[in-house]
């Protein structure tokens, strides 16, 4: 894909179709008889997690729990963030011990957010397994972290990716550049 100044990679319908496909992939991967938790990383991962849970429930998945995770306190750049660090609530009202956890975020880039999220999760208990689902996978990893479920893979490096979602941003698109 040629790098224009700002390309729209997915519009509203594209995001919807991509999330549907992810839901299907996740559903067929769920181990039988193990409780499942879908946990979104605040803030856009939370939106995507809620959509996934809705879609999985619609397709008949049973016993799903949904939660959201704030990773502010676990960030490795907290000291440099300064006053921009705004703490939000972690809301996981279920026991994650022995549960199969799907961690959801909008963009996978350096891998540092996911590292923080895994640290935060293991402070809450010992999940059976943690899998990672992202809407966009972008090059630039600084840690050995890979996603298990990827909506869209962007090949261009050093180009910012913007995800906008209705619930958090009032618009719906994935843009590069």
């Amino acid at each position: 894909m040629a790098a224009a100044s700002s390309d729209i990679l997915l519009d509203g319908a594209g995001i919807h179709a991509t999330m549907d496909r992810l839901a299907g992939e996740i559903l067929s991967s769920l181990p039988a008889g193990v409780p499942v938790g879908i946990i979104g990383i605040r803030r856009r991962g939370e939106v995507l997690a809620q959509r996934l849970v809705h879609e999985l429930n619609r397709r008949g998945a049973a016993g799903l729990e949904a939660g959201s995770l704030d990773i502010t306190l676990y960030r490795d750049d907290l000291a440099e963030l300064g006053p921009q660090a705004i703490l939000r609530k972690t809301e996981i009202d279920f026991d994650i011990n022995g549960r199969y956890i799907i961690l959801v975020d909008d963009v996978l880039y350096t891998g540092r957010s996911v590292r923080s999220a895994i640290d935060a999760l293991v402070d809450l208990g010992r999940p059976k397994a943690i899998r990672l689902a992202v809407l966009v996978d972008r090059p630039g990893r600084e840690l050995p972290v890979q996603a298990d479920f990827v909506g869209l893979k962007v090949e261009q490096s050093d180009v910012p990716v913007t995800v906008l979602l209705t619930e958090s941003d009032g618009a719906e698109e994935v843009r590069v550049g």
């Binding site: 306190l73 676990y74 907290l78 609530k89 640290d119 402070d123 208990g125």
Partner: peptide
């Protein structure tokens, strides 16, 4: 509001965050 977010930490099995 920040304190509300911190209330949750005291309900965890590991009541500690690395902030």
């Amino acid at each position: 509001k920040t304190a509300e977010s911190f209330q949750e930490v005291s309900t965890r099995s590991i009541k500690k965050v690395p902030a």
